[in-house]
Design a protein around this nucleic acid. Structure first.
Length: 204
DNA sequence: CGCTCGATATTCT
DNA sequence: GAATATCGAGCGA
């Protein structure tokens, strides 16, 4: 399976966020000469912009943490938050904007599910990858992967075209933020149970 | 089920 | 020093 090319990510961030729903996030782990594939279909994303978006890490300009949002598109922006969790984004923006990224908030597990369960032992199957901090744990994603090329199938973390099926995609306000809360830059597959905080969908 | 609250480290003021 | 693109335990209904 091939990867969406760089040009896919060189479009308005919210358009990329919408189109990433249904694609596949793939984590390959090389260990003792063997290769494990952990993968899931993306079911929930959020777009984060530049200076016009007060909720974005990039709104005050480049810093050591957010520099990937200002660099080449199609790269992994991984950051640590709340003292406990990693979150993974893909840098994406049109050529007229200086920064932007898409947060991946939910996955439907497809490959390597038994390994995911070892990396993240939970009783409830839906709690495996239904949240930005959960899926990074299940796929063993940390800041070591910050900046990797997500358009390269050789990368330890990349994005592939998903199964070609038409799915309904719904736009809602972003969650877990305190600023620009009215902007509908969260995109979900409402049919998937692997969406974080499902109650937020019904409220729209 | 749904809500409140505390943990915990990095980042920025 | 304050805030944070979160999670899970604990509680009440």
């Amino acid at each position: 399976m091939s990867c969406p090319p760089i040009s896919f990510y060189r479009r308005p961030t919210e358009v990329v966020a919408r189109d990433l729903v249904g694609k596949k996030l793939v984590r390959t782990i090389r260990e003792n000469g063997r290769i494990f594939r952990l993968a899931g279909t993306i079911v929930e994303t959020e777009a984060y912009g530049y200076s016009d978006d007060p909720a974005s890490h990039a709104c005050m300009g480049p810093t050591a943490r957010n520099r990937v949002m200002f660099g080449d598109v199609g790269r992994a922006y991984v950051y640590f938050t709340y003292g406990n969790h990693f979150c993974v984004n893909v840098s994406a923006r049109s050529s007229t904007i200086e920064a932007g990224a898409v947060l991946i908030r939910g996955l439907e597990p497809v490959e390597g599910i038994e390994i995911m369960k070892k990396l993240r032992p939970v009783d409830d199957a839906f709690s495996l990858t239904s949240g930005p901090g959960k899926l990074t744990q299940a796929l063993n994603i940390s800041s070591a992967l910050n900046g990797v090329d997500m358009t390269n199938p050789e990368s330890e973390l990349h994005i592939e075209f998903g199964i070609s099926k038409s799915i309904r995609i719904m736009a809602t306000p972003r969650i877990g933020i305190t600023r620009a809360v009215d902007r509908k830059w969260r995109f979900v597959d409402p049919a998937s149970p692997y969406v974080s905080r499902r109650i937020q969908i019904k409220a729209i």
